[in-house]
Amino acid sequence: MEKVLLIIIALSGLSAVSSHAERQYHFVYEAKTMSEAQRYCREKHTDLATVDSMEVVELLNNMAGQYNQSAWIGLHDDRDIWRWSMSDPSFYEPGETEFRPWRDNQPHNRHEEQCTYFRSSGKWGDYDCNTRLRSVCFDVKGPNATFVLTDSYMTWTEAQSYCREHHTDLASVRNPAENQQIAELFPGVGWFWIGLYRDSWKWSDGSISSIKYWAENKPNYRASKVCVAAAFDNSGKWEDLDCGVKKPFICYGPVVPVSMKVIKVRVENPNGVDLKSKDFLDAMLVELKNNLKAQGLDDNVQLAWRKQPDGEVFHEEL
């Protein structure tokens, strides 16, 4: 007795295309650490996935299908990156953006301490940006700066908005002379916000995206090395995890055409095996995929049974 089956081979693997970003996303189910996943994505595609729109969030959720756990995306926490609110590079001479008279044992670089205060002693520390402090604004005319202390107590973000509205910006402090100028303005002991802050969440490919899709009470900042996974049991919302955890992951790359091929396979003498059995059909796909990979076919090959018009995979040859 002979039966005939048909299979479809899609050389693109499990992937989907974002029309907005013109990127093709690839869901890889092999569990890897964040650094291993990043290396794989950069070798096979472009990089770990960047999520820059709600369209991409929806696309990744659709790709995940019945998969209800989490998978790495390209977001991670780089806690050593500090920058000034006043970002104009022409305002700084070489080395001036790195001037840092920190207090002893500062900065802590804790996740919640992302903004900088200036102490009356002229030393700096990092602190929770939601704390209300007075601030140092400055007015810039050419290469010169004039510093002004505020009377109101504000969060760092509120202070930044106030300084930009009434002056030039929250103060940048470029050198020891300017640091001394500010210290001499202080009426006594106190802490004042200046413009140095840390925006530590970075995408693996270096791109900038303002979208934030954190799950409730995330990030919780408990891991020593923090990377981000999309949790597909929670609408693809983000959770922060230790980067050494092994998880499936999502890559992206350029959009490429999907190649399809249909192959006929003849099965002889099935010896009583139920060729309609899902277990048998699944086992056959695994064996076929392994054989094709051994012949050098793409690791991401996807196989599926192609059913006949009557819904059957196999038909007996007469």
Rank of each mutant, 00 (worst) to 15 (best):
K3Y: 14
G13P: 01
H20Y: 10
A21T: 04
E22Y: 06
R23F: 01
Q24S: 02
H26G: 01
V28G: 00
K32D: 08
T33C: 03
E36F: 10
R39H: 14
K44Y: 08
T50D: 01
D52P: 06
M54I: 10
M54R: 12
E55D: 08
N61P: 11
Q66I: 12
N68R: 04
A71Y: 11
W72S: 10
I73T: 14
I73N: 05
H76C: 12
I81V: 13
S85I: 12
P89A: 03
F91P: 00
Y92M: 04
P94F: 14
E96M: 09
T97K: 14
F99A: 02
Q106R: 05
H108M: 06
H111Y: 08
Q114P: 00
T116M: 03
Y117F: 14
G122Y: 07
K123Q: 13
D126T: 00
C129M: 10
K141P: 00
G142H: 11
L149R: 03
T150Y: 08
T150C: 10
D151F: 09
S152M: 15
A159L: 05
E165F: 15
S172N: 00
E178V: 12
Q181P: 07
E184W: 02
E184M: 11
G190P: 04
F192Q: 01
G195R: 00
G195V: 09
L196C: 02
R198M: 08
S207D: 10
I211W: 08
I211L: 15
P219M: 09
R222W: 15
A223T: 12
S224C: 11
V226W: 04
W238Y: 03
E239W: 05
D242G: 10
C251K: 02
P257D: 14
V258W: 08
M260L: 15
V267P: 06
L275S: 01
D279P: 06
V286I: 06
L288K: 00
N290H: 04
A294I: 03
D298A: 06
A304K: 03
P309S: 11
H315G: 09
E317C: 15
E317Y: 15
